[in-house]
């Protein structure tokens, strides 16, 4: 059985959010076209779903400042916590390539997967009252194309790996990345 996955070069993620927008544009995640919301005169992010996002962390004291960027999404784990948490078997892992998917018809919106996933991948959709997440652009990879995010990555930090080596799960993971032993994520990293 093959396993699809990600290779993320931490020294090359530039925090440009091209992957975030690529995902949004390709997958039409909600809201597809909506103004921001106002509460008490301040703009608020609308309820929105992103299957991929960039984690920005910063610290230090002037002038010794640091800032890091890590692109993040569903890691299509080898032992997915979401799958195990789902009471209605809505979540499956494809035998042929290990892609983890949520069946929208079976999902009952209990959000157990949202709590179970150590990487924040499952996204709650207030409108449908169901959970969605990164599909690894299954409709693209099934046709021999790459996922939208990896296609566009400007810094060449994010690479789609069609034959991920399960033994490399979570290799060189950055600080704060959940223990790879928990779910065996199909993502490995290159150190900064």
């Amino acid at each position: 059985m093959a396993q699809r996955g990600w290779l993320i070069d931490l020294g090359r993620c530039i925090g440009c959010h091209s992957c975030t927008v690529a995902c949004k544009a390709e997958q039409n995640t909600a809201p597809a076209n909506s103004p921001l919301l106002f509460k008490g005169g301040s703009p608020q992010r609308p309820l929105h779903l992103s299957y991929r996002w960039v984690i920005v962390q910063e610290g230090g004291t002037y002038p010794g400042v640091w800032r890091t960027f890590v692109t993040s999404a569903c890691n299509h784990c080898q032992t997915p916590a979401c799958l195990n948490s789902c009471p209605v078997n809505a979540i499956s892992k494809r035998a042929a390539d290990g892609i983890v998917l949520i069946d929208q018809e079976k999902c009952i919106g209990c959000k157990y997967c949202v709590w179970a996933c150590p990487y924040g991948a499952p996204q709650w959709n207030e409108t449908t009252q169901k959970v969605e997440k990164c599909t690894l652009c299954v409709e693209r990879v099934d046709k021999g194309l790459q996922p939208a995010c990896a296609t566009t990555c400007v810094g060449k930090a994010l690479t789609y790996v069609p034959d991920f080596n399960p033994a490399q799960a979570g290799q060189n993971a950055p600080e704060g990345f959940s223990d790879p032993a928990l779910t065996k994520p199909s993502a490995r990293f290159v150190k900064k």
């Binding site: 779903l49 929208q104 018809e105």
Partner: peptide, 19 residues
């Protein structure tokens, strides 16, 4: 049309460049 009802969220993804 979405490639599979199983995998899409609220909105289906775009048709691909080879469709």
């Amino acid at each position: 049309a979405p490639v599979s009802a199983l995998v899409t969220g609220q909105n289906p993804p775009d048709a691909t460049e080879v469709d």
